[in-house]
Write a protein that binds this DNA or RNA. Structure first.
Length: 171
DNA sequence: GTAAGGATTGGC
DNA sequence: CCAATCCTTACT
């Protein structure tokens, strides 16, 4: 029986939390009662209001509100009118950071992650410590990983474009 | 109220 | 290369 990750796991700097998520188990219990588990293989860190690539840099709005709260919450948003991006809020209350889940074992791309997990707006603000439909479990190991610049954020400009805040499981 | 564009993907 | 498709934000 694996141990469910608690909010305390997320209450650290997003640059520590993001790489630690690699190799963790993402559990999704669907409406029909079936359960599927996935290993997290790729994640990106978005670090607070000063990070121009982070949505929270636009200020505290209805959309970014959850990122300003405590770690361990889910932040989802629709992109290009068709893809739900899955993020986990990191850091303490007031620190608007989050980790974007870009890939799971056998699934490449954040859009496909959201599609596979059947995410939609009701997941906004979901508490990973108490949720009955999505949570994380510790797998007991930490894979080697490589870092690289984040994808699709050229609009953020330097120095944000160059930050090596994308973490990919190296196998 | 209106308009622009996006942390993407898959098809041409 | 570019359309799909809709929500959030910025501006009038």
């Amino acid at each position: 029986m694996n141990h469910r990750l608690l909010s305390s796991f997320f209450e650290h700097d997003v640059l520590e939390v993001a790489p630690q998520l690699l190799g963790k188990i993402l559990v999704r219990k669907f409406d029909d009662g079936s359960i599927q588990k996935f290993l997290i293989t790729e994640a990106e860190a978005y670090r607070g209001t000063e990070d121009l690539a982070c949505h929270a840099s636009k200020g505290r709005t209805a959309r970014t509100e959850v990122m300003f709260g405590e770690g361990g919450r889910v932040y989802v948003y629709l992109i290009y009118g068709m893809y739900w991006m899955l993020n986990f809020v990191a850091g303490p209350e007031g620190d608007a950071s989050a980790v974007l889940i870009r890939g799971l074992e056998g699934i490449s791309g954040p859009g496909r992650v959201g599609k596979t997990l059947q995410l939609e707006k009701s997941f906004y603000g979901e508490n990973l410590e108490t949720s009955e439909r999505i949570w994380l479990e510790d797998s007991g190991f930490s894979p080697d990983y490589s870092t690289s610049p984040r994808i699709g954020i050229t609009y953020a400009g330097e120095p944000w474009i160059s930050k090596p805040w994308r973490f990919v499981w190296k196998r």
